[in-house]
Amino acid sequence: MKSLKFLIPLALFFVLAWFLARGLNLDPREVPSPLIGKPAPAFALTRLDDAAATIQRDDLKGKVWILNVWASWCVSCREEHPLLVEFARRKSVPIYGLNYKDKRPDGMAWLARMGNPYEASLFDSDGRVGIDFGVYGVPETFVIDKQGVVRLKHTGPLTPDVLQTKIEPLIRQLNG
């Protein structure tokens, strides 16, 4: 036993190295959302393309849907947008946009230029609904189930990997 004592510092080193390596691989931007498993916050917002038409949370009950937070001033939204357009073409679930702290003409022009994957975009000019959804970094994407419960949140631009390994299986399961 005594002969193995010299291994103690080595063992301590490995423990420390493991913690440090893990710390390096954690993303501090990925803040777990307290909304997961809770009902989506209530909202009633006008459509981006029609200031007279209102969409409320409960209008969307009974179907699985995706809420994608975007803005014309948001650079990373450009990055994920082609992916969303492509995803919307498959028509697996309706995607609603939350046009966050934007101006109507800017948002509409952006959609005209980049393609519009959204069933409708909700116009959240002062960002209050964004706050209710805990939005802190556009783009963000939520998956909401038939009962109106938030099931998944992704912060930052969507990637093909996130779509295929997280979002699509969840949607299949929720619709299944």
């Binding site: 803040v31 777990p32 959302s33 307290p34 209710d132 959804f133 805990g134």
Partner: peptide
């Protein structure tokens, strides 16, 4: 605040 952004 914590209901929206968590204990973080």
């Amino acid at each position: 605040m914590t209901a929206r952004y968590g204990d973080f």
